[in-house]
Structures are given as structure tokens and as C-alpha cells.
Design a protein around this nucleic acid. Structure first.
Lengths: 216, 216
DNA sequence: ATTGACAACATACCCGGTAGTATGTTCCTC
DNA sequence: GAGGAACATACTACCGGGTATGTTGTCAAT
């Protein structure tokens, strides 16, 4: 709130921490990552982390939140467009999958955050935050749910339970989180090709007719 | 080797530990699970665990190994049968998915073990064991790889990279590990129905023609 | 029946790592 | 030059892996 503080400096300092934390949490998992690990990867010490975050969990939750926000920013605009259902679903799945690859460390934290809530081994305060973040994630999933249900209603998709279909679709689209890692000077085309194959697999899995599936 | 020791007693004692450990590792994850947690869930103390296992990692690896062995025992007999490729693939996917649900705690440990090797934050000795277990897992995956490649050769499946297709297939079949948990008096039909939907999704994703996909 | 030996644990203890805190230090701004 | 932001340093408390040692029951040979 102080006008004297250049906001961009604070923001960039926080973003550096967020990026480093996301990377560390992905590399070792939440439980096995120490605050010192994160600080060390920044060439700093704990003091810097604890100046911006009250606890390790708080830092993790902020990574989670940013990861989800990135997904919303990418997919929501597509969902709001007036497109044929199939086209919309194709673009959404492709872009979601690309987001998984491009912001992998953050999305891995989202994944682990979801698991954390399901396990329930948290303090009540942490649980409250996780529930709020889970709601954010559920809202995001509902964007997709609406589209696949519409596709089913239009007869262009076929599946039994939409909840299970949604889970399976996300598992397919999120799968590069676990078997793919970007290398340094890697070609963008490779990333695009992987997202294509994942999206096609997911769309086929949802029962889309073959002639409706095209490259985006 | 001592004839004086009733082997079944030792075995059942070890299996009790394995089951408890698998459950604990699933509930809290490897890093967040303490040996005391496992012992407490058995109504025992550390002494019991460390009498049978040299370290926490050793215990975890044994759970991993048992999980993979269960999968082999279920799927290998099907793969060895002389069946039409499509039928074989259908039965294998369905049974694999059922195994994921029925032996969930063990399979979650398999999953985490795979991640553990990829992260690489282990001692050299642990890494050696993980590499051996990974080879076991790769061999298991190769059973499926052979079948889906044959299906592709026969023109009944279509996908680009068989490696990616394999990953996506397993992600679909394994997905109940993460969004489904068995309740106490739950109907077997529900489990069967979930496995069906996962298997159908996976087969569709692999490009199987709709008329070839039937309930198993 | 006695005893020795060992398996199968339990108990007690050590020690390294880590979350969190309390307190310095530096620089920047007003 | 005063105050606070943005850190670094130093410290505490505790948890958890691993070990060393004690205890009990069982079996085998005498």
C-alpha cells in the first residue's frame, strides 16, 4: 500500500521466489523440499523466504494458486468464444495440455496440492486454504465439464459418467507432467506435437468421431 | 533356511508389515511417512520393522516389488494366451485397471517409486534398486507395448508414437489410483464398472474402432 | 525338565536435518 | 538522519531415521 515502494520490484522478487519454489517442489516433492533448498536455489537464505511468506505451506499454496490462475487465463477466453462445441473442446484441450508442459513446475504443485487435501494430513488452517484452492480447481474443471456435456448432448461425444470422463480427460492431458520434461534448447515443435497427441487421445477417449478430430 | 522356523509365520508377519506400509505410504506419501507411523498402524514399535527391513527405503522398495509382481501375475497369463489381438488388449487393459483398484496402496507406491527414480534424490545404493525395479516395470509395460503395436500393424489401432500412446494408455488405466478410493462395504459392481469405463476410454484413445470395443 | 540359542520383537538413546523465530545489517527513501 | 523494507545470521526446538541393547517366547539337544 505504500506508494514509496516500487511495486514491480516487490512483485519480481516474489515471482523469483515462486519460480524457484515451484521448481524445487517439483524436483523433490513438497515434503522432501526444505525452505533452505528453495533459498539456496535462489542464492539466498531463509530470511528472504520468510520475509515474504509466513510458512512453507503458505509458499506452496501460493505456487498452487498461481498455477491455477495461469490455466484460467489461457482457457477461459477460449471457453467464452462462440465456437462450435467440437472446435472449442479441441482448442481447450490442446491449450490446457500446452499449459501443463509450459508451466510444468507450477502444475506439478497443483497436482500435489490436490493430493494434499485428499490425504488430509494438514492443520485446520492449511485445510481451509486447500479447500478454497480446490474450489478454484473445481471451477476450472467445470469449464471443461460444460463443454463435454454439451458435446454429448449434441451426439458428438459418448461416455457414461461425465465425472469419470472428465477425470480421464484430465489425466490424459496432464500426463506429460509425469513423463515429459523440457530440455534446454528444445524445439517448440516437439512440445506442440506432444500436446497434439495427448489432445487427440483424450478426444478419442471421449468418444469423438474420428472425422471430427483435426489438428488445431 | 532354518527348518525350525515355520516359514508361514515369518511370511505372514512380513506381509502384515508390507500391507501396513503400503497403506501408510499411500496415505501420507513416502517422505511424510515415518517408520513409527507404520509401526503404530500395526500396534507395534520400530523394532518390529527394523527387524525385518534394514531401512525405510528397503521397506518401500519391497512394497514396490510386490505391487509389480501382482501385476505380472494377473496380466502375463492373459498375454500368453492365443487370442485375437483386440480381445487380448481388452482383457489386459480391464484386468490391469482392476488390479490398480484392488491393490491400490501397492500401486501408489509403484507410482511414487517411479517418481523417486526420476527425481534422483537418492543414495547410490537406493538408485541401483530403483533401476532394477524400473526395469521390472518396463518389462511389464513392454507386454502391453507389443500388443498395441500389433494392433496398429493389423490396422485396428491408430496412433503416432507408440511410447506416447503407451504412456497415455497407462495414465488412463491407472487414473483410479488418484480419484477413486474403495469404501468399506462397497459393491464389486462399482469397481467393475469403473474399470470398464477406464478401459473403454483407453481403447478409444488408442484409436480402436468403435464396433471393436465391447464389454469384457 | 533344563538349558542354551536364537528369532522376534520392545525400549532407550543418539544425532542430523529442518521449520520457525529472534535479531542483526544494509540500503533506500523521504 | 530516521525509519522501514529486504534481506542475512544465529539460534531453538523438535521430529524422525537409525542403532544399541534389553526382554520374551520357542525350539532343540541333552
Amino acid at each position: 500500500m505504500s506508494a514509496s515502494v516500487p511495486a514491480n520490484t516487490v512483485r519480481s522478487a516474489q515471482e523469483d521466489i515462486l519460480n524457484a519454489a515451484a521448481q524445487c517442489f517439483m524436483d523433490r516433492g513438497y515434503a522432501a523440499t526444505s525452505i533452505d533448498d528453495v533459498a539456496r536455489s535462489l542464492g539466498a537464505t531463509k530470511g528472504r523466504i520468510y520475509h515474504h511468506y509466513r510458512s512453507k505451506a503458505d509458499l506452496f499454496f501460493d505456487v498452487y494458486r498461481h498455477g491455477m490462475q495461469m490455466n484460467f487465463d489461457i482457457v477461459a477466453p477460449i471457453a467464452e468464444q462462440s465456437l462450435p462445441t467440437i472446435d472449442k473442446l479441441q482448442r481447450m484441450t490442446k491449450e490446457h495440455c500446452l499449459a501443463m508442459i509450459r508451466t510444468q513446475p507450477f502444475q506439478r504443485c497443483v497436482w500435489e496440492g490436490v493430493e494434499m487435501l485428499k490425504r488430509g494430513a494438514t492443520t485446520p488452517e492449511q485445510r481451509d486454504v486447500l479447500i478454497e484452492l480446490q474450489a478454484m480447481r473445481d471451477n476450472y474443471a467445470d469449464i471443461f465439464r460444460a463443454v463435454i456435456e454439451q458435446a454429448k448432448a449434441e451426439g458428438t461425444a459418448q461416455f457414461e459418467s461425465s465425472s469419470i470422463a472428465l477425470q480421464l480427460m484430465f489425466m490424459s492431458l496432464n500426463s506429460p507432467l509425469f513423463w515429459f520434461r523440457r530440455r534446454d534448447g528444445q524445439d517448440n515443435d516437439i512440445v506442440d506435437e506432444i500436446a497434439n497427441q495427448c489432445a487427440i487421445f483424450a478426444l478419442r477417449g471421449l468418444g469423438l468421431k474420428e472425422e471430427l478430430i483435426t489438428d488445431v
